[in-house]
Amino acid sequence: MAQPVIISTPFYIVKRGISAIIKDIEEVELIFIDDIKELNQYLELNRVAAVIIDLSLLKNKQDTSLFFQLKDMTTYISINSDADKQYLTHTKKFDYIINSKGSKDKIFSVLEKTLKSKSKNNEASSILSERETEVLKLVALGYTNQQIAEKLYISKHTVISHRKNLTSKLGIKTVSGLTVYAVLNNLIPKDQIQ
């Protein structure tokens, strides 16, 4: 499954430019969000491989604090131009920085580093952990997050986190889809499906 990458920029020409470069490197699912608030909402609910943010998008210095409930799986890249100097302090929070005046090779190498290393990570982690398999079985049997938490003696928050992980590893989002997967792999018997 192509990994999702968000491009956030107010400029059409930058959007097209970055998309074209990325397409030369790796097949990814590009998501375009040109509003910081929307970006944050999206990041709360979804896991993405990388977020590429044009600093011209930020209206004031407070804006950045919003999206830095940093997630370790996500790489943050900023695009800077000289006009963005006032945001320089924020750029420390980014994993990589692309200068819009940078050479082709530099821009290419930053994106290549990010995207290629991510895809390796994904391949390595596509097998479910024991705990994730437990959660998957219970989801497939129709238990709610609360019930699963009680059964496994873990917090509801942890259940949700396991669910996010197994969904992203398997590439299956819905409960019915997970149920089909569980039966196909003999994790639960077919006659127990509700």
């Binding site: 499954m1 398997l170 590439g171 299956i172 989002k173 819905t174 019915s176 889809g177 089909v180 997967y181 196909l184 792999n185």
Partner: peptide
């Protein structure tokens, strides 16, 4: 989401 799942199950998991 369901349509996506159906595709992916066929591609990746169904014998």
């Amino acid at each position: 989401a369901k349509l996506f799942d159906l595709k992916n199950i066929l591609i990746k998991y169904l014998p």
